[in-house]
């Protein structure tokens, strides 16, 4: 499988605090890779380093073989990586359609074309009937949909979703899962940061586990659930010991 995104030995320090230490992995074309780990493991920091919100202290990020380390976010977006935010940032004073059009304007200067592009994406994300609602008055699930739709409108090759399922109920999580699979069918690669295991396991091709800034495991979903170090990181030593006894 061709490598789309490759990160090598990423270290990010904030003063003395080491948020990421020597993390390396890659995302292939048309692949869903999930980044999991307990709170404070440095998932979002890694996300920001890749997406260009701040440069990593050490290490390199390659996209389609090109070095994109430390490039500003807007340039990285133009190359084909678009992210969403953990805390949804809907453009409140703009309608759903305008939110998505803003993304679509990356590839066209024409308002009509942007509207047309946005329409297809609104349909796919199930937002068509809410197109004229202001972003600020949406429910949380629709805000997350808009977030994904707006990112989609920039036609990325790699879509990075930061905890897009947090705060959703079971049916809504199912919706987002289906959407992720649909996006993969469209030929996209996804890098997903997520807490919710049961949602992430069935749709991921590969999983990378971070703990305390370091990568502790990488592999297929079924390998990860049985990985001792992962269990220890998530549940603590005591549970790991007990599970061994029984």
């Amino acid at each position: 499988m061709a490598e789309l995104l490759k990160i090598e030995h990423i270290t990010k320090k904030f003063g003395n605090l080491v948020a990421n230490e020597d993390v390396s992995f890659s995302v292939g074309e048309n692949e869903i890779v999930s980044l999991i780990g307990p709170n404070g493991a440095g998932k979002t920091t890694l996300f920001n380093s890749i997406a260009g919100y701040y440069p990593p202290t050490e290490g390199k990020v390659y996209f389609q073989g090109q070095d994109i380390t430390g490039k500003p976010a807007y340039d990285i977006c133009k190359m084909g990586i678009t992210r969403t935010f953990q805390v949804v940032k809907t453009l409140k004073e703009m309608t759903v359609e305008e939110n998505v059009m803003t993304g679509a304007f990356l590839h066209t200067g024409s308002r009509r074309q942007a509207k047309k592009d946005a329409e297809g994406i609104l349909e796919m994300t199930g937002l068509l009937d809410k197109r004229n609602v202001k972003g600020g008055s949406l429910t949380i699930i629709d805000k997350k949909r808009v977030e994904i739709a707006r990112a989609m409108a920039t036609r990325p090759k790699l879509l990075m979703l930061d905890e897009c399922m947090a705060g959703l109920n079971q049916t809504e999580i199912k919706d987002v899962m289906n959407l992720c699979v649909k996006l993969k069918e469209e030929g996209l690669s996804l890098l997903i940061v997520e807490h919710i295991m049961e949602a992430i396991m069935p749709i991921s091709d590969r999983i990378v586990v971070l703990n305390a800034g370091k990568k502790i495991a990488e592999g297929l979903p079924e390998e990860i659930v049985n990985n001792e170090e992962v269990i220890r990181a998530y549940l603590g030593d005591r549970y790991n010991a007990e599970s061994k006894k029984s």
Binding site: A51, G52, Y53, P72, A73, Y74, C77, K78, T82, R83, T84, F85, K89, L91, K92, E93, M94, E98, M101, T102, G103, F105, L106, A114, G135, R150, A151, A153, T154
Partner: peptide, 19 residues
């Protein structure tokens, strides 16, 4: 559209390719 996106959120603007 880009102006309004910047007004609403700098980070979003950057994430969709706006300087």
């Amino acid at each position: 559209f880009y102006w309004k996106a910047i007004r609403e959120s700098h980070e979003v603007a950057e994430s969709i390719g706006i300087n």
